[in-house]
């Protein structure tokens, strides 16, 4: 099975992500202004609503595996990814990890429109955890991967949206993570560039990096993952092989 997915054989892979009893509650406030808060003071319970985005998530992910995190809209996939990445703190439980983690939750999140592509490469590289020296080393390779060419010294506000995400993706894949969290960002650019991204992801898999995808595309998950976790209303309803996972996902839509 592994050969099909281009995943390498690893003896005794260690656990790299461990989530124990993680719960996340969002409080939805209906009154935002000070006036409303004062007027509704004391009765505020009625103007608050609890919403469990994650409930008692237990999870272990081993090195070198590629996990598809799927579920209907609002099932908690992105929240789980953010909790793993440390961007959101849970109300209960702990997530532990080891190794270098990079989160591709949004391409070009740190780009400043007024700075040039070159300046943004260094800034974004640093945000993703590269030192200045490393970024300088990878710089040519980043520009080559992004196919930006001479536009690298143009302010990024003049970039087309395709150029923007290509440059962002090029930086992200040069970060050298042990664990990569990916949220719906693989469908960027034109078809040739998408193929290039996929090839890069497969290269990552072959190098034994752990990848956690959030995706709505069953085909993509089938194509890339060797394990699927299906979430519904903040709970794990399925955890196992890819083809069965897709079936479980389809079933969960009905609920």
């Amino acid at each position: 099975m592994s050969s099909l997915f281009n995943l390498p054989e690893i003896k005794n892979p260690p656990v790299v992500i461990r989530a124990s009893d993680v719960s996340k509650r969002f409080v939805i406030r209906k009154d935002k202004s000070l006036k409303e808060r004062i007027v509704n003071f004391g009765r505020s319970r009625r103007h608050k609503e609890d919403f469990w985005a994650l409930r008692d998530i237990k999870l272990e992910i081993k090195a070198g595996s590629s996990i598809g995190l799927v579920g209907a809209n609002g099932s908690g996939k992105s929240t789980l990814l953010k909790v793993i990445g440390g961007i959101i703190q849970p109300n209960d439980g702990v997530v532990e990890r080891r190794g270098r983690l990079a989160a591709l939750l949004e391409l070009g999140a740190g780009f400043h429109p007024d700075l040039t592509g070159r300046e943004n490469v260094f800034l974004n590289g640093s945000i993703l955890g590269l030192t200045q020296k490393q970024t300088a080393e990878y710089f040519d390779s980043i520009v080559e991967f992004s196919e930006i060419g001479d536009f690298i010294d143009t302010q990024v506000k003049f970039y087309s949206s395709g150029m923007y995400v290509r440059l962002a993706f090029a930086i992200a894949v040069h970060v050298d993570p042990d664990i990569l969290l990916v949220d719906e960002v693989l469908s960027v650019g034109d078809e040739p560039f998408q193929d290039k991204c996929m090839a890069k992801i497969r290269e990552f898999q072959a190098e034994g990096r752990t990848i956690v995808f959030v995706s709505h595309s069953a085909a993509q998950v089938e194509d890339l993952c060797n394990r699927v976790i299906v979430l519904s209303h903040g709970q794990i309803i399925f955890d196992g092989a890819t083809d069965e996972g897709i079936v479980a996902l389809r079933e969960s839509f009905g609920k």
């Binding site: 390498p8 690893i10 005794n12 090195a63 190794g99 990096r209």
Partner: peptide, 10 residues
């Protein structure tokens, strides 16, 4: 490479 990474991580 993958095995090395895994051993290092463990």
């Amino acid at each position: 490479t993958a095995q090395e990474r895994s051993d290092r991580l463990s």
